[in-house]
Nucleic acid binder design. Structure first.
Lengths: 257, 257
DNA sequence: AATGCATTTTTGTGATCACAAATTTCGAGA
DNA sequence: TCTCGAAATTTGTGATCACAAAAATGCATT
């Protein structure tokens, strides 16, 4: 099933889309501090575009729950709490379980081979200790898996949920990643797909998601707050003036002007 | 848990929000024909506002899957297919089941009383044969139920899914509504909440959603397309010129200018 | 009557401007 | 040193404009 929306994603070269992608990348790679305030003009200047595409991109992210619009008027990176992580955990267990259960019923030989390739790449990347590439590969594996189910609406829901947990997945490194039996689990998932064993595949992914987010929830402090490890640890101090500029929003795919 | 996002919903008086609400209302009440093309300028003129708030509102609805942006550039009301309904059915069964299961664990006496009140109102409305009010009351019951779970992210996901099925819920009248044991089911749900029987409550809502959307899927033609009953049946002919104006988008809450 | 092509119109996109509301700054008074 | 309030600045919102791409229209040719 190839929806018009999916086709649109590929051909959309608008500034709006580029801004959206840039913000999304910055968000999932943890370049924003929780609670950080974002202004339209700041983003516009950082990316070298006018307010118009920025407004539309940011508003979309607000609608998706990646940003939070405060009653007064300012966009903030949502704070993560233990309760929110547990809620996201239960939703993700439900929908990702559904996707994988369905994927197991229809997976083709080529799709399974592709999963096996990505799983191997994860092992290779992990040996090098590259946590950024590691996270990207894990994400690639999961979405390759969910895509097999061929359910565009379900995929969209899952993407929205990942966008909210994304900034906090850095917390899995290095402890949880080292302890968890990720590679073995991925092999069991692939075997379940091969055997068309929908129940087993579903159980594996449910345990995976549940374990991962339960671990993150366990990192909360007494107040229930969860603070991700930032690339630059200058997150807590926000004392004087224009220290805001310290937060750089790299254009990446955006080079115009 | 009262999120900032939820608080924002109430205090947002922007034109963008009003346009969004108007379009959403038009959509869920079935005032748009599937496949119908919508232009920004048309909506702007119909509501008496400029393009700016319309663009942001429409783009949000596109992001939520309520509208579809075509590769070229035009916004269309998505066509509904049997496959899409079945996909929505399975997702809704999963997430609404989750919500009700959790709701049963925490429902207060007042919340249950509120549900009972709405359930009675549905019975009253149905006697009058008012299908519009009927649909609104059913929606009110469901969301009152889901809100009890106190999980804002889950609620947002559910709202997004309802937005996609909304335009087709007219198809349930009058046959399915008459045949289905809705009132009895609602009573069983309420009893399950009262008994804190999470499993039973979940089973009831799962059966409800599954039955409803399976019925809608069964209405598809040989090609798998599903066409909702429109208020004005002038949907198929779009032969000449400015017949577009026939589609009226009533402002409702929007009276400015 | 049907088809191809050039012209006109429509339409989404991005930038800019004006304005009001919110936020910050700063100094006077205690 | 702290507090309060007025002035200055920042910031989101909505309207308008210019432009290019797409769609619709009209006309000539077969």
């Amino acid at each position: 099933m190839r929806t018009a929306a999916a086709a649109d994603e590929l051909t959309d070269t608008s500034l709006r889309k580029q801004v959206y992608d840039s913000l999304r990348a910055a968000l999932t790679s943890g370049r924003f501090a929780p609670g950080q305030k974002l202004t339209f003009r700041f983003v516009a200047k950082a990316l070298g575009v006018s307010l118009t595409p920025v407004r539309e991109a940011v508003r979309r992210l607000v609608a998706e729950g990646a940003f939070e619009m405060q009653p007064n008027r300012s966009v903030r990176i949502p704070l993560m709490t233990k309760a929110k992580v547990l809620e996201l955990r239960d939703i993700r267990v439900a929908v990702e379980g559904l996707a994988v259960g369905n994927a197991a019923k229809v997976a083709s030989r080529a799709q399974i081979a592709n999963l096996r390739r990505i799983a191997r790449e994860i092992v290779a990347v992990r040996k090098r200790g590259d946590s950024v590439a590691d996270r990207e590969k894990i994400s690639e594996f999961h979405f390759a898996l969910y895509t097999i189910a061929d359910q565009p609406t379900l995929l969209r829901v899952i993407e929205g949920l990942w966008l909210q947990t994304g900034p906090y997945m850095n917390l899995l490194f290095p402890d949880y990643i080292a302890s968890a039996a990720g590679p073995a689990r991925r092999l069991r998932i692939i075997q379940a797909l091969q055997a068309r064993d929908s129940v087993a595949a579903r159980r594996e992914i449910e345990n995976d998601v549940h374990g991962t987010l339960s671990y993150v929830a366990g990192l909360a402090d007494e107040a229930g707050n969860i603070v991700p490890a930032l690339p630059s640890a200058a997150g807590s101090r926000r004392s004087k003036g224009k220290a805001n500029a310290a937060l750089e929003l790299r254009p990446k795919r955006l080079d115009l002007k």
